[in-house]
Amino acid sequence: MSERAKVKVRNLTKKFGDLLVLDDMSFDVEDGDLLCVVGPTGCGKTTFLNSLTKIYDITAGEILLNDEKVDPRKQNIAYIFQGDSTMPWLTVEENVRFGLDIKKVPEGKKKEQVEKYLEIVGLTKYRKYYPKQLSASMLQRVSIARAFATEPELLLMDEPYGQLDIELRFKLEDELVKLWKLTGTTVLFITHNIEEAVYLGNKIMILTNKPTTVKKTIINALPRPRDIAAPEFVELRNQVTELIKWW
């Protein structure tokens, strides 16, 4: 456990009635990490993220961001969900602006951020479109731009590409790595896709089956851009797969 960690999770426990889902989890996330969290299906990955962000009240334990109790209203956190979470009544541009409006960012800075992130995710041309006029990958790009535009201290992503086809997924994964490098944001990325975790993360945290605990955290030092066919990539993927096996 590091004293200088960005996020400190201590004895995190979450129960739904008598069902113990998260069991006394403790771990750290270093500043600037892109930490991928993987685990068996149904192990409680989303519960884990929702507990981190106080969408669910935790049963016991403590979660600290920069040594303060995590609170999305006081700290700059963003969350990209599995499904579409764009506001359908706002245009692409207004969606990207939304978080900045909430945080009452000065108008000049707001404009600058919106332009910058629309450009990065390639949606400048579609700024006046409404979400119903966009494809699934464009919608996720809007969510990504909205999240990054607020320059969050911590970005949480819950299987954001789980419902996209493989080509779009690769494209958006590269986009995420580009944005992460550019901004240095600390990212916690939940996925059930081991290949995605090895491709993206500089660290991979493996969870056990329910009741969930942290099984192991692996440092992923593979060079970028990563080649999914490279022997060292395949080796790491196999190592993670072995660790996930709970049977």
């Binding site: 962000t53 969408i55 999305p72 209203r73 006081k74 700059n76 956190i77 963003a78 969350y79 969900f81 499904g83 579409d84 979470s85 764009t86 506001m87 939304f98 978080g99 909430i102 945080k103 969510s143 909205r146 607020t150 949480l156």
Partner: peptide, 11 residues
């Protein structure tokens, strides 16, 4: 999910 997204952005 839209409500949660707004909450996470500090609304």
């Amino acid at each position: 999910e839209v409500i949660n997204a707004a909450k996470m952005l500090g609304a």
